[in-house]
Design a protein around this nucleic acid. Structure first.
Lengths: 340, 340
DNA sequence: GGCTGGCACTCGCACGGACCGAGTGCCAGC
DNA sequence: GCTGGCACTCGGTCCGTGCGAGTGCCAGCC
């Protein structure tokens, strides 16, 4: 019992030291810097056991130990206390986010803030369309047969689509179309929009039916589908600082970030309970993210989930601090968006 | 005369070889790989002169020569023929860009395309707001005293702003406001919008005056100002490949790219005549861009300039190829946007 | 006058051996 | 079960050497 407990202390100390120094940590340094109450020799025995169990590893003989993914996992699950943010950090969050003029601005500031607080790459997802509701649909005629459809959601997103129509339209037709669409979809969650289409087409005046059908089809096809979820990414400059932590090069990671789809999946799969999720190294199950960890959490207004946000960095990161920062920022963003 | 001519050939050969091999190039290799018709010894004499004049330099004694910024400049100005795009590349441009659903999509595809064609970081500017005209203004009421203003421009941009109003509004007020704003601003270039405000406020019905004033103020302040210009950036993964070409680290460059303001300035200062602009190394007059070159060009519809696009890469880049790619993409994007 | 081949010279770099020190595993003793 | 001691391993650094690429210069040739 007592051994087990101390071994965990040793693991914790190893993780902490390694994260802060980036040097494999040896038994002697550990005994000096931490009050473990035992000699280096004893620590060596513990380390041998930890290595046996797969929590730590040696880069090479005669080097210190380094935590494995499994070691970080244990650290995150059982050994790390939540690190409260400093007053200065709370202040910074407020100062940074207040004064945003629209959703785009809020998310842009959020991603910069997160990157600055954590010194990692930050990722913020736009509020999911499928979980948003229609606030207003605007229709603007571009040419005789071409419309610009602008969707405004209750989460503040504004999306545009160009719709090619089968027939030419008069100005009155466009106004009628706008009224029809709004009365049909206003307040509807986008996920449910599809089911309202048949009814809408049926009740539309005959001369507008083809038009309504074409426009609603575009609406449902391109706005309800997932895959239309967007990401804001920032702080990639931080990768240059941590470049040495990534084995091969930064390239695959940068590519994955640009690709968006992989990261989007990781960020959007958040715990509905609001807990911060940590995925360490190979847990991410994607080649480009070997050696990378993702810390993410959902944000929302009240009890309603809007999307996810988080950070991506090397497995060798300050988990308690980053988890605290991610959670705090998510809460604040949620509040901010609830106001509008 | 004949010497001068040959010396330029030597410089051209040095640039070409150095760009493709990344090794300082020596007189012997030069004589072997290029048909200069003279012996290495003669080339050495020419190289000594070129070095004297500042076009090339030696990283260290007993190494070959490397072009300086000045050398690249001469190469771009006088020694490079425009490299026509291959049929496959033209095909790729069409295939890539066709099927875009809106402006956001067009620019996103453009930046990916450009990054792929040039293997550099690509940058595309959204159509400048100040040069755009108002197509439609939509007003959506969020709360009693808060409005969401949505601006749709003739260049396809859709911008949103939240406006806090001094007074509570009834639904009819919002509808009236919408009509007033549209009749006042529809068709106006945003740069001229400010001058229409006083007239608009004067002619507005008394009970709407405060409202109109507040909304137009926001409109002018946040949408007409420059600095609201946006960039799309892509292909940063290509930096990892060319990392060795950047002296210190990638960090300052990545930071400058995220900051946007520096790059925006470079990209938006385009030649109005439609020529491709090349800024080499220190010509960029920004510390983070030492060792980087920017190739940019304006894009637009017909004779109307919308914005700029271009690439950022190491000074050691394929200027003819990249210039051709940038120009071709800009043309195609211009055509595409002219259609909508 | 300009080009060429030859030649001595300069360095950067890769290679290899020696040294050092951090860290380990093991063992006998407390 | 912990501790101090000890022999051992092995990566990193330092240094000296040899090699080769590339240069500048010079005398001779067209």
């Amino acid at each position: 019992m007592a051994h087990d407990e101390r071994r965990l202390q040793v693991l914790r100390a190893i993780v902490q030291d390694y994260v802060s120094t980036n040097d494999p940590v040896g038994s002697k340094a550990l005994a000096e810097r931490h009050d473990l109450g035992v000699s280096p020799a004893t620590i060596r025995n513990d380390m041998a056991v930890l290595e046996e169990q797969g929590y730590i590893t040696q880069p090479h003989t005669s080097a210190g130990r380094v935590p494995t993914d499994k070691g970080y996992r244990l650290f995150v699950d059982r050994l790390s206390a939540v690190k409260p943010l400093s007053a200065a950090e709370r202040k910074a969050i407020e100062r940074f986010l207040d004064g945003a003029v629209d959703l785009h601005d809020v998310l842009g500031r959020t991603v910069r803030l997160l990157a600055q607080l954590t010194h990692q790459v930050a990722v913020v997802q736009y509020p999911t369309l499928s979980r948003s509701a229609v606030r207003h649909l605007e229709v603007v005629q571009l040419t005789a047969s071409r419309l610009l459809l602008v969707l405004i959601t209750d989460t503040g997103r504004v999306e545009q689509r160009v719709v090619e129509c089968p027939v030419d339209m008069a100005q009155d037709d466009v106004a009628d179309l706008r009224a029809l669409l709004n009365s049909a979809f206003a307040g509807a969650r986008l996920a449910d929009a599809g089911s309202r289409v048949p009814d809408l087409v049926d009740t539309a005046p005959p001369h507008l039916r083809a038009l309504v059908a074409a426009v609603s089809a575009t609406l449902v096809e391109t706005l309800v589908e997932p895959g239309e979820d967007r990401l804001v990414i920032g702080g990639t400059a931080n990768l240059a600082r941590t470049a040495l932590d990534f084995p091969g090069s930064l390239r695959p990671l940068l590519e994955a970030l640009e690709e968006q789809v992989v990261v989007l999946k990781l960020i959007s799969e958040v715990d509905t309970g609001g807990a911060v999720l940590v995925r360490i190294g190979e847990e991410n199950a994607h080649e480009a993210l070997t050696g990378a960890s993702v810390v993410s959490v959902g944000y929302g207004t009240g009890d309603r989930a809007l999307g996810g946000l988080g950070i991506v960095g090397p497995t060798r990161m300050d988990y308690p601090g980053n988890m605290a920062a991610v959670r705090a920022v998510a809460r604040y963003v949620g509040q901010l968006l609830a106001e509008s």
